[in-house]
Design a protein around this nucleic acid. Structure first.
Lengths: 392, 392
DNA sequence: TTCTTTTATTGACGACGGAAAATAAGGGCT
DNA sequence: AGCCCTTATTTTCCGTCGTCAATAAAAGAA
């Protein structure tokens, strides 16, 4: 029924091979010896696993002859050939969809977005199909095959089954998106939660490379959190995890749409900040951009709203750090546009609420280009393609 | 120097073998076919791995001929022979040490405790050595070899290195306890954090059997939490994790020794409850036992302190559930003696603060016999003996 | 008895990855 | 140029593990 083309398959049958590939993918050009060391394998095993990958064109020997040690046989590093294959990532938001065409190294080649007429699965699917079609055309111009499609959706998503169980934002329930999109695009489709997708991108290509325990916190309309523990993204027993947005920081705080009071999101979410500014200053603020504008102009009371938000976020992050002891927390999201307005409060609140050696955790902020969410989706597609059933 | 006897070694060289053994250990008698199904192996592999384990006496065929299906060749279940080997677990608290002698199935055979003269590593080591000596004598009477010693200590413990990095309670820093105890007892020693040890016991022999994601919350003098994610106990990048006791539930709450206000422990720890009762009722309460007594007698204001504690614990658990989405949370600890006084509040607060499907998490309470902490230590020794480098 | 059904075992086989030795590829030295 | 030294990579050989397919075993059913 669904005419998914039996797309090119990745020649890494053995766990060692896929582990080697992901090591090279994440850690740039590496000599075979170095790969062996990092992957805990013998050099011989690396040579053997690398050969078919080079033959298939996924890896290339890097003729980069700089900074070579004076002694001994020159090393012959290998790296992933990003131009060998392309992937498409799509992020579905409430009112638009963002799509990117990336290469195998998850570098964005083309980014597009289209508004969404409505949130019905049918129309969303049609828009996605159209956008993917455009990106496929671009890929055709480049004469590089597209080997997978990743779709990121907020809410409870069962990646294994390819089903969106429940997305409050889109008001979807049990939509078999992977199957549907597979049928219309002819590509192998991976569907995952948006924050988890972003976390995968950080884990493989970003600030989480090489770490087995870290967290990604997204600040924006909502406050989300992706967790990596023991080298694997946490999905939770019931498909939901990382709900830092509904961690209570002040039981007497403002009411949250979840029914409680003083959730992180009820204080530091975009809408909460704007509402707070309206309430305390009486100013006519419509959206975040205006709020940031006012704050930068030094309108009294506005910075205070941001300070409060920063404190809430810092406390939320400290909670994560106290419970999981991650090595690093990466703060990202659209909300970072206001970074300078609450960075200090985040740090202070974190330092104050982190217990014991949890404060050794490295908290960093990372700007998030608008297409980053879609890039995360592409990362999940790459991950599925490599079928890395291994951790780390 | 250290005369660690080259104790009997476990004949499970291959990962498959140790996985098979742990499966049988946790899931009681199983037919080989069933083991194969659960461990994801072929029946042939099970047969081959089981043979040497039976020959060495660790597994026995269970002649339990009940409830056999009428058809086909009768199944021949295998189970672990608990009496094949013994292990010793020791829990070091501030003023006493508790030791247990358990069998290979972690069933307690003998339990002992001794007061501790002081907290110097030297005297603690001497007391531990003496207690272990007594238990070894008991084991000698039974004519069963003791194959390992587990020691549980609160604080930051590096299990791999066998070093207590920092224990605020004992005021220890970088004490190489495994090496020291190994030298005085002649046993292979495993040292781990006390809450993690308890968690290991639950994972292998308790309410966490078969679950890949769950949490253990201990209520008592402190509030602790052990986490299992992806089938493995979480240790945190810096050796500390599960600090649920210092999750803030009320920023305007009572001050905590950690420097913040309104931590779970500052509201629901033993000392906090007692202090609260004294403050609100003026009653002369010295310890928890008296507090419980007053509450049961219905003294006004006392139940309220417990209700407050229950609410704090419930919120803390909800935070864990929101962040990690565990399948189950097991509440335990000495504090459960007052279980009837706050169980309801825990449940209510949890249900209110759990977001989305996090409330599908199964929250259960489990009474904790006084020697349970020591049994956890024994479980870590058993785990080390089996050297299960595999997860699940 | 003979067949059926289910569980356990056996033996051949293939694949994976390790160890060690061989080879490759410089650069410096004489 | 020829030799030596060092380090990277490859080759060859080999053990191990686990699967597959066939077979044995142990009952009840026909």
């Amino acid at each position: 029924m669904s005419s998914i083309r039996p797309a090119e398959t990745f020649p890494a049958n053995t766990p060692a091979a896929s582990q080697i590939f992901t090591t090279v993918l994440s850690h740039g050009p590496l000599t075979r010896l170095e790969v062996a060391r990092r992957a805990g394998l013998s050099p011989a095993a690396v040579t053997k696993a690398v050969r078919p990958l080079i033959e298939a064109g996924y890896l290339v020997e890097d003729a980069d002859d700089q900074a070579r040690p004076a002694l001994g046989r020159p090393a012959n590093p290998v790296r992933v050939d990003g131009g060998r294959a392309l992937f498409i990532g799509v992020k579905v938001t409430g009112d638009e969809i963002i799509g990117v065409l990336t290469d195998l190294c998850c570098r964005v080649r083309v980014a597009r977005h289209t508004p969404l007429p409505d949130r019905e699965p049918k129309s969303v699917l049609a828009s996605v199909t159209e956008l993917v079609g455009e990106l496929l055309a671009e890929a055709g111009d480049l004469r590089i095959p597209v080997l997978g499609l990743g779709i990121a959706v907020s809410g409870d998503v069962d990646r294994g089954a390819g089903v969106v169980r429940y997305s409050p934002f889109l008001q979807w329930r049990d939509v078999p998106l992977a199957e549907l999109a597979g049928a219309t695009t002819g590509l192998p489709v991976t569907v995952d939660n948006d924050v988890r997708a972003l976390t995968v991108a950080e884990q493989w290509f970003g600030a989480g490379v090489g770490l087995s325990d870290f967290a990604v916190v997204t600040v924006g309309a909502g406050i989300g959190c992706g967790l990596v523990v023991h080298g694997r993204v946490v999905s939770g027993a019931h498909g939901v995890a990382g709900e830092i947005g509904h961690v209570t920081v002040d039981p007497s705080g403002p009411p949250c749409h979840c029914g409680n009071r003083g959730c992180v999101e009820a204080i530091a979410g975009d809408a909460a900040i704007v509402r707070r500014i309206r309430e305390t200053t009486g100013a006519e603020v419509r959206d975040t951009a205006e709020a940031v504008e006012l704050a930068r102009r030094g309108v009294p009371g506005v910075r205070e709203a941001y300070a409060r938000a920063g404190e809430a976020i810092g406390r939320g992050i400290a909670t994560v750090a106290n419970l999981l002891g991650p090595e690093r927390v990466i703060i990202s999201g659209e909300g970072l546009a206001a970074h300078d307005l609450f960075a200090e409060q985040i740090r202070d609140a974190f330092a104050a609420a982190a217990f014991g050696s949890a404060d050794r955790c490295d908290v960093q902020t990372r700007p998030l280009p608008f297409e980053e969410w879609a890039r995360g989706a592409a990362a999940t597609a790459i991950q599925s393609f490599i079928r890395a059933d291994d951790q780390r």
